[in-house]
Deep mutational scan, measured.
Amino acid sequence: MKTQEELTEIVRDHFSDMGEAATLYVQVYESSLESLVGGVIFEDGRHYTFVYENEDLVYE
């Protein structure tokens, strides 16, 4: 099982292909040891929320 830090790095790496991230945040109260819930805000103003669970990243 991966730590939240490892899950955060996986998510950060995925979003790095989409541009320069200004902020990546984790909603600790919705996350667990198995999943990471949060969002990313890019330098150009785009904002996505995400759920990373079971090696699957879903974002909108």
Score class of each variant (00 low, 15 high):
residue 1 M to F: 12
residue 1 M to V: 11
residue 1 M to A: 10
residue 2 K to N: 04
residue 2 K to Q: 06
residue 2 K to E: 01
residue 3 T to Q: 03
residue 3 T to E: 03
residue 4 Q to S: 05
residue 4 Q to M: 13
residue 5 E to Y: 08
residue 5 E to S: 07
residue 6 E to Q: 10
residue 7 L to D: 02
residue 7 L to N: 03
residue 7 L to S: 01
residue 8 T to P: 03
residue 8 T to A: 10
residue 8 T to Q: 08
residue 9 E to A: 13
residue 10 I to G: 02
residue 10 I to Y: 06
residue 10 I to C: 12
residue 11 V to N: 02
residue 12 R to W: 12
residue 12 R to H: 04
residue 13 D to G: 13
residue 13 D to R: 15
residue 13 D to Y: 12
residue 14 H to F: 15
residue 14 H to Y: 14
residue 15 F to T: 01
residue 15 F to D: 01
residue 15 F to E: 02
residue 16 S to W: 09
residue 16 S to Y: 08
residue 17 D to C: 15
residue 17 D to T: 15
residue 17 D to A: 15
residue 17 D to K: 15
residue 18 M to S: 04
residue 19 G to A: 05
residue 20 E to N: 12
residue 21 A to M: 15
residue 21 A to L: 15
residue 21 A to Q: 10
residue 23 T to C: 15
residue 24 L to N: 00
residue 25 Y to E: 03
residue 26 V to M: 03
residue 26 V to F: 07
residue 26 V to A: 01
residue 26 V to Y: 05
residue 27 Q to R: 08
residue 27 Q to P: 01
residue 27 Q to A: 10
residue 28 V to N: 08
residue 29 Y to N: 02
residue 29 Y to I: 05
residue 30 E to W: 13
residue 30 E to R: 07
residue 32 S to K: 09
residue 33 L to Q: 09
residue 33 L to V: 09
residue 33 L to Y: 09
residue 34 E to A: 12
residue 34 E to S: 13
residue 34 E to K: 08
residue 36 L to S: 01
residue 36 L to M: 07
residue 37 V to S: 08
residue 37 V to K: 12
residue 37 V to L: 06
residue 38 G to K: 01
residue 38 G to M: 11
residue 38 G to V: 11
residue 39 G to V: 14
residue 40 V to S: 00
residue 40 V to L: 05
residue 40 V to M: 03
residue 41 I to H: 05
residue 41 I to A: 02
residue 41 I to S: 02
residue 41 I to W: 10
residue 41 I to D: 00
residue 42 F to V: 01
residue 42 F to P: 00
residue 43 E to Q: 11
residue 43 E to A: 13
residue 47 H to D: 00
residue 47 H to I: 09
residue 47 H to A: 05
residue 48 Y to R: 00
residue 48 Y to G: 00
residue 48 Y to I: 06
residue 49 T to A: 05
residue 50 F to R: 00
residue 50 F to T: 00
residue 50 F to E: 00
residue 51 V to R: 10
residue 52 Y to A: 01
residue 54 N to S: 06
residue 54 N to L: 08
residue 55 E to I: 07
residue 55 E to S: 12
residue 56 D to V: 15
residue 57 L to R: 02
residue 58 V to W: 12
residue 59 Y to T: 04
residue 59 Y to R: 02
residue 60 E to Q: 12
residue 60 E to T: 12
residue 60 E to C: 15
residue 60 E to W: 14
